[in-house]
Design a protein around this nucleic acid. Sequence first.
DNA 1: ACAAGAAATTAGAATAATTATAATATTAAA
DNA 2: TTTAATATTATAATTATTCTAATTTCTTGT
Lengths: 136, 136
Amino acid sequence: MTSKQEFIEKLRNSSLRPTKQRINICEVLFNRDKTFHFTINDLFNLIKDKTGEKVSLATVYNTVHAFHKKGYLKEIPINSNQTYFDTNVTDHHHFFDVKEEKLIDLKNEDVGPIEIQKSIPGKKIKSVEVLVKLED
Amino acid sequence: MTSKQEFIEKLRNSSLRPTKQRINICEVLFNRDKTFHFTINDLFNLIKDKTGEKVSLATVYNTVHAFHKKGYLKEIPINSNQTYFDTNVTDHHHFFDVKEEKLIDLKNEDVGPIEIQKSIPGKKIKSVEVLVKLED
DNA sequence: ACAAGAAATTAGAATAATTATAATATTAAA
DNA sequence: TTTAATATTATAATTATTCTAATTTCTTGT
Ligand SMILES: [Mn+2]
Ligand SMILES: [Mn+2]
Ligand SMILES: [Zn+2]
Ligand SMILES: [Zn+2]
């Protein structure tokens, strides 16, 4: 159980003003036990459900991207018409259940270390992501 | 150098009628030495450039998805506003140069075998894709 | 506490990728 | 050659995302 005060500090520490909307979004995103995979639309609906307060869609987009930029959210590449985000910002991989449209975390030991043997001059590796698609 | 006749047979073999438009699209997609990574928009413009004939955007979408369904094209998951496709339909991985917005093939030996140690009951693995993002 | 400026929120408009529609044209088969 | 099935096309519709500009809320200095 994380307190509202902690969210306010977290926001302050990253020079994001602790507004009511951002705190509500924090509640939905970070006040939970397990990692959370979501689309903007999931989040938008959950805010109403869980906090009882409405936040505009534009603010949800703005806040998610602000959090993403600050490193509080990870973006997961999937072939979907909607962008997926993840509250687990550590380097990790995913299952994607194509039918359920659900992401599932893979522990790094479930995949093993990945060593990229090729390099491109003048470029460095920013991230290595494994996506395992699941079907029935 | 692949001939038009081969494309016609290829289309017939997959119960796709060999129309002028589809043959032109085949020319652009498959009449080349190296694998080809593209967006619908790339392809749409190349058709005009390379064949001199215009194909409607709707037909490009339809044909790309028909080819994808038939297994002649692979879809590459990237966080981009445009969907990427690949004429190399074998199981392989990618660099994505974020600045240039270009995909580069990785050979399987550049990545090594990936063994997924976790399984989800009732689900089986459909694909395993590694995406390595590159920055300057 | 108050004022002033900076930053955030919002509804709604704009944009852009993709998909759907429905009329016309082409292809395949009898 | 007739006919039915399928494909193409222009255009409209849809959808995710971003932009805009007015309003509200925060922060900071007084
Ligand atoms: Mn995750
Ligand atoms: Mn490729
Ligand atoms: Zn983002
Ligand atoms: Zn497709």
